[in-house]
Design a protein around this nucleic acid. Sequence first.
DNA 1: ATTACTTGCAACACCAATGTTGCATGTAAT
DNA 2: ATTACATGCAACATTGGTGTTGCAAGTAAT
Lengths: 200, 200
Amino acid sequence: MTVQKQQTKRPLRADSERTVRAILEAAERVLAANPAATMEQLARAAGVARTTVHRRFATREALLDELTDWAARQFAEAVDAARPDAAPPLVALYQITANVLRVKTDWSFAMNRPVEDSHPEAARMHAEVRATCVRLFCRAQEAGVLRPGIDLDWTRRVYYALIHEAAKEGAGGEDIDALATRVVDTLLRGAGAPGGLAGA
Amino acid sequence: MTVQKQQTKRPLRADSERTVRAILEAAERVLAANPAATMEQLARAAGVARTTVHRRFATREALLDELTDWAARQFAEAVDAARPDAAPPLVALYQITANVLRVKTDWSFAMNRPVEDSHPEAARMHAEVRATCVRLFCRAQEAGVLRPGIDLDWTRRVYYALIHEAAKEGAGGEDIDALATRVVDTLLRGAGAPGGLAGA
DNA sequence: ATTACTTGCAACACCAATGTTGCATGTAAT
DNA sequence: ATTACATGCAACATTGGTGTTGCAAGTAAT
């Protein structure tokens, strides 16, 4: 009698998984706007009672941890889906940008939080993405897409920042492809005039 | 007897002003790292007792409000000091960048907080700076420094983001001028190769 | 030394968020 | 109908941060 539902994840009444997702999504959304949001607020935003949240996540910390891991996973998947090590650098760059923008219109919370301590899993994923990104930029450099001699880690950080900025705009239901184009274009060409005085 | 120190701001024992500054600076620094920091933590970071903080700022909200205004003021001053409407666009751009980087190694807190509501003073200052920035970019565009037809507000946001990113690095005691150069260079030229495939 | 002022420290009341429990309700399987 | 599960609700204890007060000590003027 103990095990009559044979499935691995036991869907059972089938709502549990969905509820967790709803909570995590609501948490990401609300915490991005207000990092000090109450459990009550998170619960309300997810459409459940506060006690239900506590049933799923023993403590607030536990919820934040799960959220951090979950966001990192989505982030990594969005990057990997673009075949960053196989596709031509420019194509991969564009694809990654679009994928990331699509997955999360705004990361601000789970992304910008100190993930280094006590989150080995998330930290690993972020580091991996970072490495993938630098690898891609390196290929791009060899292909003549990126200027030679440029600081690749600085470039990566600028890239992150551009995506972040574009994501804010994306909340208004803009066209993802247009945003991705703008990000890549800005990253590569900047805002200066072609024959400009930039070298002065 | 009531007024024997005639000065407008009554320096008196002369420490009060200094203490307030120390508290605000510490608050900015600590809150940037942890927006949920305790009054106790802020006090310790400022090198004073918690009660002293409460003597200067009736409530936590009051402290945050003052901090917001204070940061906005410094921001505005850093920009104005560069004569953004008089100096040649490129010079002004560089000067603003350096000034801002010098004044605040990290804004993240006072800058990225919802300043629109209940902070009319700070909101006004930020709006003014934003306008000044766009005006400068407009002049830069006319001077052939910025590409014609480019979205000036997007450019401004990218500029802010670049400064923000450079500021993180600046914490490590890097050379301000080198950072400013990098920011301006990245803003104008991006990271792509000159004759690159960027137009593809 | 006295005065004016500020700070640190300890103690306190207060409150809001956290985390817990029990119970009634609802729903989908059996 | 019964079983198995999940939820909402109300009530509760606990905790940690906030804001207050009183007092002793320290410092710079007079």
